[in-house]
Nucleic acid binder design. Structure first.
Lengths: 196, 196
DNA sequence: GTCTATAACATGATAGAC
DNA sequence: GTCTATCATGTTATAGAC
């Protein structure tokens, strides 16, 4: 008898997961406004009313679909570590960013809730990265510029799909970006860290 | 009698301009989808039907509101000129970008037509800037990374309104960005252009 | 528990009175 | 030429049949 109840709960869980999966895809592709409960339900092979029953509202569905653990990782504080760390997150980004993140990014310019989400996430990344900036002044600002730089490249690549970026290999992009990020993080124009 | 007809035509022109102005504001603030004809008409102090009468459809209104002359300016091709030119457009951007441009940027992630508009505009900027890149290899890619960098900073500042960027002075931002753009444009890690 | 039917509302667009 | 009234559509959300 317990097996029957477990089967039901399991079915519910797997259905919920399938709905969330399709919702993520839809939100990532078309943003919050243009994504309809009907389309999500259709893609998941369920009735639209079931989606409402499970998640209560479209916004709650969005919240559940995009909830991603922002990796804080606030360690490492020397010269190249900064650029490497930034590029690591970009490498992750260019090589297929999680769909939930794409969904928030896609909606951030038109949906205030998504904008808040991104503002908070980027704020965390900025203050985390700021601690790793070797330059003595404007650490937070430098970190913000580095983060928004990667944001711009990511948008151009993943969301806008600019040909010039999509045709290039992620490795080449990372290689070209590294000196730029180093230049952002370093105070003096001196080329190496040991000083003359 | 001609004066009367001219007055009518002028009144129509000035009304049309007022509608376009309010439409730009609305589109820039909320994007294409969330902007309603009714809201635009209300802000302009006219009847919603008049807006339809004048512009035919919401999309045509959008097109008229955001049509901005993209300054091609494909000259200059030496070392610092590249970063300077890029920063000039950013200076323009940070110090109050034209509202029509804000409107397209705001909608580019969720409206395919706006995305096309931006893709074309950025493509033009990229190939224009690519000709000014001093490095011998990957000129187009370097230009694309520079342009998307500025795009990211602009988005972070104007659209997302990240505190770390809004609190900083445009001059400081430009000064910090300059070495990064130079690093993107230069092939060798050499610090100055005269060589040793 | 799941789905059909529908309510309640907002939008873009149209037709017709003044 | 200008605006009131309406249409047709699409949305979220709810109530009730199976």
């Amino acid at each position: 008898m317990t097996s029957l109840r477990q089967t039901r709960a399991d079915r519910r869980r797997v259905t919920e997961e399938r709905i969330l999966d399709k919702a993520r895809e839809e939100f990532a592709a078309k943003g919050f406004d243009r994504t309809t409960i009907r389309a999500v339900a259709g893609a998941a092979g369920v009735d639209p009313a079931l989606v409402m029953q499970y998640f209560g509202s479209k916004r709650e569905l969005f919240g559940r679909a995009v909830q991603t653990f922002t990796p804080p990782a606030p360690e490492a504080a020397d010269a190249d570590a900064f650029a490497d760390r930034m590029l690591a997150t970009l490498g992750l980004k260019l090589g297929g960013l999680p769909e939930g993140t794409l969904a928030v990014l896609r909606s951030m310019l038109t949906d205030p809730a998504a904008a808040d989400h991104v503002r908070t996430a980027l704020g965390g990344q900025i203050s985390g990265a700021g601690a790793a900036v070797p330059a003595p002044d404007d650490r937070e600002l430098r970190a913000a510029l580095a983060v928004t730089t990667l944001l711009g490249v990511t948008i151009g690549h993943q969301l806008l799909e600019l040909p010039a970026l999509c045709e290039a290999s992620p490795d080449r992009i990372a290689a070209l970006l590294r000196p730029a990020l180093n230049a952002l993080a370093e105070a003096a124009p001196g080329p190496d860290t040991t000083g003359a």
